[in-house]
């Protein structure tokens, strides 16, 4: 970081790339190619409004309603659009279901395509070269680093996202959640379970309530 003096007689100079972004913004606004209000709206949306809670809602509904689930697996784009979750880039959404026989995992080997409307902005590790390369090459090892060990007879299928097609994993519904409400189920659906690098949380993790959530979980990815 450029940080020349301890006291600042002038405004603190932002890092070089920040100045370049500002320059682009200035040029494009001056030319009328971009509206500053639209930029603020985009940042606010992705920072505050869209996130894994959207995907969790979809998963909980699929667990509760077989018709919804059938429609979702058939054409997720339509179904999630009806819930108000649609791709701003017009991308196609595909939901893949985890079963005892097959576990699904999502990656984007080319860059970082991700189901934004359902999960928001991807975490750093999703964008890293390590994950992008290794998810395909050694998915079980990657899963183990996330603390996920699958039964040996469960196969792992890795889905490579593109600009046009984004995948969401439908995790298996945890045991002991019969009769739960949608909101209760939503609380079990972690972001990682919808990328396939995690599983839905166990029923007990919610029943135990606050004490459990205050406990820090052992590092799973050392």
């Amino acid at each position: 970081m450029p940080h020349d003096h301890h006291d600042h007689p002038h405004a603190l100079l932002p890092p070089e790339p920040a100045l370049r972004v500002k320059a682009l913004e200035t040029i494009l606004c001056d030319k009328g190619l971009i509206d500053p209000a639209a930029l603020e709206e985009i940042i606010d949306t992705y920072q505050n409004k869209i996130g894994p809670q959207n995907g969790a809602r979809v998963v909980a509904k699929a667990w509760m309603d077989p018709d919804f689930k059938r429609a979702l697996l058939q054409d997720a784009t339509e179904v999630v659009r009806d819930l108000g979750y649609y791709g701003r880039q017009g991308e196609h959404m595909v939901v893949v279901e985890n079963t005892a026989e097959q576990h699904n995992m999502v990656v984007c080997t080319l860059c970082s395509c991700y189901p934004w409307p359902l999960l928001g902005i991807p975490p750093g590790w999703y964008k890293s070269d390590a994950y992008r390369a290794r998810a395909v090459r050694e998915p079980r090892k990657v899963l183990a680093e996330f603390g996920v060990t699958l039964p040996p007879d469960t196969s792992v299928r890795v889905w490579d996202s593109t600009a046009e097609v984004r995948y969401l994993v439908l995790p298996m519904r945890p045991e002991g959640t019969e009769g739960w409400t949608e909101d209760q189920l939503v609380a079990l659906v972690s972001r990682d379970s919808m990328i396939g690098t995690g599983l839905a949380l166990a029923a007990a993790s919610v029943i135990e309530g606050v004490e459990a959530s205050n406990q820090s979980v052992e590092g799973t990815a050392e």
């Binding site: 920072q47 680093e145 079990l188 599983l199």
Partner: peptide, 23 residues
């Protein structure tokens, strides 16, 4: 190079937390 950088623990951050920070 071979390790995943800074993997979030799946349960540690709470079930539906957005990645912190988003940017």
């Amino acid at each position: 190079c071979l390790d995943l950088p800074q993997v979030d623990t799946p349960e540690g951050e709470g079930p539906i937390a957005a990645p912190e920070p988003v940017f």
